[in-house]
C-alpha cells in the first residue's frame, strides 16, 4: 500500500514537472538574434560575402555609399568613413561627423586605423582603378577576418545593383527598391522625351574632364546619361570611358553643347574666351556648362537629377521642371529642400 502511495506521488510529481515543462517549452522562443548570426550577399565583384545580420560598426570607404547609408537612416552604424565623405555635398550638409573617424580613402586606406575600429563590415571600391582599394589592404582585412564588400560602378545598372545590395546589407530592401524605382522613373521620363526628338534635331555634345581635350568616350555612366538625354557623342567610337583627343578633332566634330566635369580646373568662360575654341558651335552659342557640385556625382543616387539637368541643357525647350523634380527627390530621401543651382 505504502509502495503504491509513493509511486502515485512520484507519478503526480512527474506529471506536474512534465506539465510545467511543457508549458515553459510552449512559451519558449529562441533568444533574439545574436552577433553570430549572419547573412550572405554577393558583391559587385561577384564574391559571396558573409556579414553579420545586424550591423552597428561599419567602415565605408565610398562617399556615395556613405550617403546611401545616411538615406537609409543607418548613419549611426558608420564608425569610419573615407576622407572624401566630408566633401560629399549632401553628407557635408546633413550628416554628423563627430562620432565618425576618417580612415583615409578607398585607394589609400589607413588599414591600422580601420582595424582598430573593430568594424563588422568594410564597404569599398573594387576593380583595378586609381580609386580602388589595393589588394594588400584587402588581404590585411582578410587576415583579421573583417568581411568587406566591393562595389564597382561601370554603368547605371551597376549603381542600381549596388543600391539593392546595400538595401539587403542594411535591411532596407523596400527603401532601396523605392530609390531605384524613382531613379529609373526620372531617367525613363528623360529617355522617353528624348526618343521623340527627330534624328536630324539631335544635338552633338561632349563631356569634358580634367582637361578640355579629355572627353567621355563610348562607355561609362556619363556616356549612358548623354545617350539617354538624346545627344550624339561624337567621341562614342572610342571604347574607353575617358579619352584624350587632339583639339582639332573636337573642332571638326563641332559639338553644340559642352558639359564640363564639376571638379575640372577650368570654367566655361576659359573656353569661351579661348580663341582656339571659337569655331565650335557650343562656344558661339555660349552653350558651355559646368555641372553643379550638388549633382556632380555620377555614382550617387543624385545621378538621376544630373540626367534631367543635362537633358535640359541639351534641349532647353523640353517640358520638364528640374527644380520641382530635384526638390521632390531631396525632400523624399534627404528630408530637406534642394538648395543647389538650377
Amino acid at each position: 500500500m505504502r509502495k503504491e502511495v509513493v509511486m502515485a506521488i512520484v507519478a503526480v510529481v512527474l506529471i506536474a514537472v512534465a506539465t510545467v515543462g511543457a508549458y515553459f517549452l510552449s512559451t519558449w522562443s529562441p533568444p533574439p538574434q545574436s552577433e553570430s548570426s549572419t547573412i550572405t550577399v554577393v558583391d559587385l565583384a561577384g564574391r559571396e560575402v558573409e556579414i553579420p545580420a545586424k550591423l552597428d560598426r561599419v567602415v565605408v570607404l565610398c562617399s556615395q555609399i556613405a550617403e546611401l547609408v545616411y538615406v537609409f537612416g543607418e548613419w549611426d552604424t558608420v564608425v569610419g568613413v573615407t576622407k572624401w565623405a566630408k566633401y560629399n555635398p549632401v553628407l557635408s550638409e546633413l550628416a554628423n561627423f563627430s562620432n565618425v573617424q576618417e580612415v583615409g580613402s578607398a585607394s589609400k586606406p589607413d588599414v591600422e586605423a580601420i582595424i582598430a575600429l573593430d568594424p563588422q563590415l568594410i564597404i569599398t571600391y573594387g576593380g583595378k582603378y586609381g580609386y580602388s582599394t589595393p589588394d594588400s589592404a584587402l588581404q590585411a582585412f582578410e587576415n583579421v577576418s573583417i568581411p568587406y564588400i566591393l562595389v564597382e560602378m561601370g554603368s547605371l545598372e551597376d549603381l542600381y545593383t549596388t543600391i539593392r545590395l546595400m538595401g539587403k546589407v542594411f535591411h532596407h530592401e523596400d527603401l532601396a527598391e523605392d530609390i531605384v524605382t524613382d531613379m529609373q522613373s526620372i531617367i525613363n521620363q528623360v529617355r522617353e522625351k528624348a526618343s521623340y526628338i527627330p534624328e536630324e534635331e539631335r544635338i552633338k555634345a561632349l563631356w569634358l574632364w580634367s582637361k578640355p581635350t579629355k572627353v567621355t568616350g563610348g562607355a561609362g555612366v556619363t556616356y549612358d546619361l548623354m545617350v539617354n538625354a538624346g545627344a550624339i557623342n561624337p567621341a562614342s567610337n572610342y571604347t574607353e570611358k575617358y579619352v584624350d583627343v587632339p583639339l582639332e578633332l573636337i573642332v571638326s566634330w563641332n559639338p553644340d553643347v559642352l558639359i564640363i566635369w564639376s571638379s575640372a580646373s577650368y570654367e566655361p568662360e576659359d573656353l569661351i574666351n579661348d580663341e582656339q575654341w571659337q569655331e565650335i558651335n557650343a562656344i558661339k552659342n555660349r552653350t558651355v556648362y559646368k555641372v553643379p557640385k550638388i549633382i556632380s556625382d555620377t555614382w550617387s543616387i543624385r545621378v538621376c537629377l544630373l540626367q534631367v539637368w543635362m537633358f535640359l541643357k541639351f534641349y532647353p525647350d523640353q517640358d520638364m521642371d528640374y527644380s520641382a523634380i530635384a526638390d521632390d527627390f531631396f525632400m523624399k530621401y534627404y528630408g530637406i529642400h534642394y538648395w543647389g543651382e538650377v
Partner: peptide
C-alpha cells in the same frame, strides 16, 4: 584620385592645349 591622374598626365608632357 582624379586630380592625381591630372597631375600624372601633366607630368608626361603634352602640347595639346
Amino acid at each position: 584620385p582624379h586630380k592625381t591622374a591630372e597631375i600624372v598626365y601633366w607630368l608626361m608632357g603634352s602640347f595639346s592645349c
